[in-house]
Amino acid sequence: MTEKTINPTLKTALELGPVIAFFVAYLWLKDDTFTIGGTEYDGFILVTAGFVPLMIAATGVLWWLTGTLNRMQVLTVVLVTVFGGLSVWLNDERFFKMKPTMIYLLFAAILGAGLLRGQSYLRTVMSGLMPLQDEGWMLLTKRLAAFFFGLAVLNEVIWRTMSTEAWVYFKTFGLTAAIFVFFMTQTGLFKKYAVEDKG
């Protein structure tokens, strides 16, 4: 299916809106406890229960408007549903906190599997955005696979050793900033291995 063009602001709102809503709702309800069906749930679990359907709905609307979703978006919504659902069902916030670990380990494993086959799966996804020579794609893929593995380890360290509030800040802002900084530090690689336009 051909991707349809939509307003960039709307696209960003659909992609980031659920995460921002989760953060705001958590700050609002973090100190509260709710009794539902005789079971006590803290604010984090209640916010997670609202985040899962919101994420599914936003992704569904994005697919309806654009006609397509990339693999990362599909994988993310599946893992949000699985781990968020487990957290709510078992009333255990640890499952939702593990979600970024699983996402980044899976990304690292997929990129690593491609490298073992002498291929850059990253190129398949991003070649239209950044025309690079083969050597550049392989080097960027190695660096990104290692970076994703590092993020998985960092997420584990933070949620296991710090407060839930600290983890929410890390998840909302730290991971996003880390990915931005990573690509900014690859400027030299992009320049060195850029494919020159011969047109």
Rank of each mutant, 00 (worst) to 15 (best):
S127F: 09
S163E: 12
L14S: 08
Y104W: 12
G43I: 01
K192E: 15
S87N: 04
G150S: 03
F170I: 08
T185H: 02
F83P: 05
T176M: 11
R123D: 10
F148M: 14
L175H: 05
P18S: 11
V78A: 14
W89P: 00
D32V: 05
K99G: 02
R117D: 11
L79N: 05
G188A: 14
T48Q: 04
V157N: 03
V47Q: 00
K171P: 02
F190T: 02
T176V: 15
T2Y: 02
F170W: 15
A49R: 05
P8E: 04
K198A: 14
K192R: 15
K191P: 02
I158K: 04
L132N: 07
T9L: 15
G17E: 12
F180C: 11
L79F: 15
G128K: 09
M98D: 08
M138G: 02
R117V: 09
A113D: 08
T81P: 10
A25H: 07
P131C: 11
F149T: 05
E135A: 13
F22C: 07
A152I: 07
L189G: 02
L115H: 01
G114Q: 06
G60Q: 06
M1P: 09
A49N: 06
G118D: 09
T35K: 05
V82R: 05
V52S: 09
L27R: 02
R160K: 10
I36T: 03
V80P: 01
I20P: 00
N70L: 03
Q186K: 04
A152R: 05
